[in-house]
Simulated scan of single mutants.
Amino acid sequence: MSETVSFGYEDIPATEKTARVGGVFTNVASRYDLMNDAMSGGMHRLWKDRFVRRVKPRAGEQILDMAGGTGDIAFRLQESGASVTVADINPAMLEVGMKRAQERGLDGLVWTEANAEVLTFPDRFFDAYTIAFGIRNVTDIPAALREAHRVLRRGGRFFCLEFSTTTWPGFKEVYDAYSHKMVPKLGQLLAQDADSYRYLIESIRRFPDMPAFEAMIRDAGFVQTKVEPLLGGLVAIHSGWKI
């Protein structure tokens, strides 16, 4: 990992990013799902439904949902009867997820504070690893991908849902204008925090494009990697297998 990494459009010392990202998510945790609805027009729910269908969770499987603090993906995975561990580096996000689970009468989920780059789970423990809209906030993405590979059993599958770069002519320009001008305003209106949402938009722009991120997944040891673009690549489902 280089000595500097991106924090939105800034380049900062790598040692500072985890804390600064932590501050962003602590600030937005209580309004995170409301803002997701506002920013995507509710489409994030459809993307997450599709993502979990691609994972194909099964009863009895052990699944790690990384950066899953608010529980959105875990709740969907658990419907299959899988045993789901929700891991997040941010305790405020986990607190939101645990409260939501309690309100829904859901039990059986395991909630744990964990850093994606240095997991404490044993080798070859999980059947599937999922991460939705979280990988771009990791300081050392290659390290996180290697850890995902390590904790998966042979035959285990990796799935990542993340924003990317749309290739649809015209749509990219419209979305860029909307996201840079409107999303911080929505953040201020709904969460009283424009800066955090400005960072989240900027972090999307600095994230590797689909071919580059797929290459990073392969470099971590995964095979049969695949990318499924949504909305021309505005969002993408990345997957790979451990053999």
Rank of each mutant, 00 (worst) to 15 (best):
A116F: 05
A82I: 05
V183P: 09
P169H: 05
L94Q: 05
A74G: 03
M210T: 06
P13A: 06
R124T: 11
M43E: 04
G81A: 15
R198Q: 10
R20N: 08
F75I: 02
F126Y: 11
A148V: 08
K242N: 04
D88I: 04
I131V: 15
P142S: 14
E173T: 10
G233C: 10
Y175F: 14
G69F: 00
A132C: 14
R124F: 05
V96T: 11
D33Y: 02
L109N: 03
Y9N: 06
W47R: 04
S179D: 06
R218M: 14
A29R: 03
K56R: 15
G108P: 10
R31Y: 08
E113D: 15
G23V: 05
R45D: 01
A82R: 00
A92H: 02
R76M: 08
G22W: 11
V28D: 01
L190A: 04
R153K: 15
Y197N: 00
R154C: 10
K56N: 10
E147S: 14
S30Q: 14
K48D: 05
V24G: 00
D123C: 12
L200T: 02
L190Y: 01
R20F: 08
D11H: 07
Q192N: 15
A59G: 10
V24W: 00
Q188S: 06
D49K: 07
H44P: 02
I135H: 07
F25W: 06
A194I: 00
W111Y: 12
E61T: 07
E79N: 13
F159R: 03
A212Y: 11
Y178V: 14
G23W: 01
V55C: 10
L106Y: 03
V118Q: 15
S2P: 12
L200R: 00
R218T: 06
D33F: 06
F125E: 04
E117P: 09
R54T: 07
N137V: 00
A212M: 14
V118P: 11
G170C: 15
I204Y: 04
E228F: 05
V138L: 13
Q192F: 14
A236K: 00
F125I: 07
E79T: 12
E228R: 11
L34D: 09
V55I: 07
F163G: 03
